[in-house]
Nucleic acid binder design. Structure first.
Length: 744
RNA sequence: GGGGAUAUGGUGAAAUUGGUAUACACGCUUGCCUUAGGAGCAAGUGGAGCAAUCCGUGAGAGUUCGAGUCUCUCUAUCCCCACCA
């Protein structure tokens, strides 16, 4: 009895597959296609830990089954290598980011190669390759031409530690998602992408994605945050100007409940609101107001939201607003419980029916009017629905009727209109860092921001002596004078290059298209090839990308669809998220805790096939699960039990006459084939493996084994333990790869 | 505060349309064989009891001949968002 020697087996078949070019994607389009995609990794300095390959193994099992089922399979892998992690790693280790990325990719790739994936490495791409980011820049230019990329001077999120601006999506509880620093608001020039133009389509088209997990779709819906309501205009008057008939200004608010307008007894603006600056000379207590604003500014976003215990604010004395529905004069406050980010940065306060407004009104002794029946507004805000009272022409109506009526009234009197508001903000698209795609724009004093002509793409990232962030709000590129100074492509006069770079998410927002046609230098992707391969049939990756990468990716794809580059409006037909693998101690695997397990060691000691079987057997695929070395040994033991089957005497069933028929073997085999096939399709890998174990436990008890049953079993096992199955397959006397066989 | 998910042995977890709860694996117990280190093999393993038997899927109610599964209420944990107007 020979011992199962995983090392020689795995090496042997990896070489064989490479030699036979078994995983090269076919260029012919004569078979049905299946495009299965992993979220590609950042090649960080730490290398892979055993959690990373879980999703890759799952897609690999799936891809192998689809191959055997006769599909033309596209299963590629690449590197998302721009962005802060790579740059920070480079700074820490005092090497150039390009060099760091090269080394890290080498390391990652060697780790992946050992696990035996079906990746077609001929389609490997790298987002930092100029031939790749040429097209990232090209997409930006198309957006610029369509007015979807614009410059803004609005205050944005600034991370003082990473020294760069960030998008809303890059924050976590008011802190930098990457380094945990509290972010500041900083007004600065930024490139912004108008993702809000696509908000409705990004939301509505989720309905066309039945094979996306509901939880991910729900996260996207919440992130887009559509709410229907109305914009209402209030006139603002300054008491000193009353007689002089000074033209009044308007203060606009967004509300989902315009029907409660009769209950509005005061207004609040956010500390950053323009109204305050515009009325500086009319606000009689401007000093006090200014002091309050300064204090509010000092508080980070975090403090502003965390200190919910007591609301604060200051009245803008000398100003009054007119409630358009009853012409009542009401006071205006500045208070930091109103956020500049959401709606118009101002609210109409209805203290009878909103808890925050009620709390504020109680504190500052403001009138509370009941306009919905059903509660006691003296005791607390009544936030449920009720019939309207004290509401003039809305009295006696319910929510639906009164909303319709008030919106009609607002529109007729030109003091408001029906409106939709989104939580989604335009995508702040520039970073003041070195390691990113240069934004292909030239600034000219005469012509303004001018697109770099397409023939001059890519705008290559120049070499620079110091790529540390400057901290001045300018990227390190700004110091390279001979790169910055150039000619305006429009008028030929002196121009300066844009020195901001693109955010980390740019390169990953379209990469699945490049795999289809990786070497094309005439177009981003050949449209005929795209029509065949797109959309991605199955996309597997971490849930943490639900509201960033997956929204950005859908946005870019829809844009490319609109300008005719691609044939389909949605990029990913089916989406599945991977559950984390935690460390043995139940915590996240991290260098910090010293609990990281390197797949190289596992492969060395137990073999890639054991690793693959174990990770698929751990539990339901989308659930988090702690690593357990004993469980891994269990997987190895299963393979050893299969290995022992080699010692059994094989016999051929003649004309359906199987000696083991009475024992129920054919029935069990068919059940196993059915269960494994269905479970792979549904990503229930743990039960697929359990069923194979049942099969092996059963046949282990006999001295003989029907050859056909063993052949079929090996085919079922092959996607999970490819080297192992290939070895036993060839031992049976087969000359071709088991992956060229038909799935049972 | 809003949204989503989950809750079954010592552990990871199974259980078609409601139909023998705990498959498969880990761990543990006992024995055998060996005696250097991921050992192997055999038997056992939800709880209580000598036993027949009784009790068991977070808690409580309901529908049903029958509920882990369906309905309602509650509790706990996890994830996402959050002073969202």
């Amino acid at each position: 009895m020979e011992k199962y020697d995983h090392k020689s087996i795995e090496l042997k078949w990896q070489k064989y597959w490479q030699k036979e070019k078994l995983y090269k994607t076919s260029e012919t389009r004569d078979k049905p296609k299946y495009y299965i995609l992993d979220m590609f990794p950042y090649p960080s300095g730490a290398g892979l830990h055993v959690g990373h390959p879980k999703g890759y193994i799952a897609t690999d099992v799936f891809a192998r089954m689809k191959m055997m089922q006769g599909y033309n399979v596209l299963h590629p892998m690449a590197w998302d290598a721009f962005g802060l992690p790579a740059e920070n790693y480079a700074l820490e280790n005092k090497v150039h980011p390009r060099q760091a990325v090269e080394e890290n990719i080498k390391k990652f790739k060697s780790q992946l190669l050992k696990i035996g994936f079906t990746y077609d490495w001929g389609r490997e791409i790298n987002t930092t390759d100029p031939e790749y980011y040429k097209w990232t820049q090209w997409i930006f230019l198309q957006m610029f031409k369509k007015g979807l990329a614009y410059e803004s001077h609005e205050p944005i999120n600034w991370c003082p530690s990473c020294q760069t601006g960030l998008a809303n999506e890059d924050l976590e509880n008011g802190k930098c998602e990457r380094c945990g620093s509290e972010i500041e608001r900083k007004p600065m020039r930024q490139w912004v992408l108008k993702i809000t133009d696509y908000a409705d389509r990004l939301l509505n088209d989720l309905e066309k994605l039945p094979d996306w997990e509901e939880s991910i779709k729900e996260m996207q819906r919440n992130w887009i945050g559509r709410s229907e309501g109305a914009i209402v205009q209030f006139s603002v008057i300054a008491s000193e100007a009353k007689q002089s008939n000074e033209q009044d200004n308007k203060l606009e608010v967004f509300t989902t409940r315009p029907d409660t307008l009769f209950g509005c007894t005061y207004m609040v603006v956010a500390p950053e609101h323009d109204l305050i600056k515009n009325y500086e000379l009319r606000i009689t207590n401007y000093g006090e107001v200014k002091k309050y604003i300064e204090q509010a500014k000092k508080k980070s976003d975090l403090e502003r939201t965390e200190l919910q215990k007591e609301k604060t604010g200051v009245e803008l004395e000398g100003l009054m607003a007119i409630n358009p529905v009853n012409n009542e004069e009401i006071p205006i406050f500045v208070a930091d419980y109103v956020m500049m980010d959401y709606g118009t940065g101002a609210i109409m306060a209805v203290p009878g029916h909103d808890e925050r407004d009620w709390e504020f009104a109680k504190k500052y002794d403001l009138p509370i009017i009941e306009v919905l029946k059903g509660g006691d507004v003296e005791k607390q805000a009544f936030t449920s629905d009720g019939l309207h009272v004290n509401s003039g022409f809305l009295d006696g109506l319910d929510k639906k009727e009164s909303l319709e009526k008030i919106i009609k009234w607002l529109e007729k009197n030109k003091v408001g209109k029906k409106a939709v508001n989104y939580k989604l903000k335009d995508w702040v698209f520039s970073r003041q860092r070195y390691w990113g795609e240069p934004i292909p724009i030239i600034h000219c004093t005469k012509c303004g921001a001018v697109a770099v002509p397409e023939k001059d793409l890519p705008v290559k990232l120049p070499e620079v002596k110091h790529y540390e962030p400057t901290g001045t709000g300018e990227s390190p590129l700004a110091n390279i004078k001979d790169w910055v100074n150039t000619k305006c492509p429009k008028c030929g006069g002196p121009g300066k290059r844009e020195t901001n770079t693109m955010p980390q998410w740019a390169g990953s927002s379209w990469y699945w298209l490049r795999y289809i046609d990786p070497k094309n230098d005439k177009a981003l992707v050949d449209k005929k090839k795209e029509k065949y391969w797109s959309p991605v049939d199955f996309y597997v990756g971490g849930a943490e990308h639900a509201t960033r990468h997956l929204i950005y990716a859908r946005f870019w794809h829809k844009f490319l669809f609109d300008i005719g580059v691609v044939n389909y409006p949605e990029p990913f037909t089916r989406l599945q998220h991977v559950g984390l693998i935690l460390a043995e101690d139940g915590r996240k695997m991290s260098k910090r805790w010293g609990n990281v397990i390197n797949p190289d060691e596992v492969v060395e000691k137990y073999g890639a096939d054991s690793l693959r079987v174990y990770e698929m057997f751990m539990g339901p695929f989308s659930g988090a699960c702690a690593w357990n070395t004993n469980g891994l040994i269990g997987a190895r033991r299963f393979l050893e039990n299969v290995y022992k089957l080699r010692d059994k005497k094989l016999y051929d069933c003649q004309g359906g006459d199987c000696k083991m028929k009475e024992l129920g073997l054919p029935k069990l085999l068919h059940k196993t084939i059915k269960k494994v096939s269905e479970d792979i399709e549904n990503f229930h890998y743990n039960t697929a493996i359990a069923q194979m174990m049942i099969f092996v436990n059963f046949i282990s008890g006999f001295e003989v084994l029907p050859r056909g049953a063993f052949r079929n079993f090996l085919k079922l096992l092959a996607p999970f333990a490819p080297h192992f199955a290939e070895e036993l397959w060839h031992e049976l006397g087969n000359k071709e790869s088991i992956f060229k066989e038909k799935w049972p």
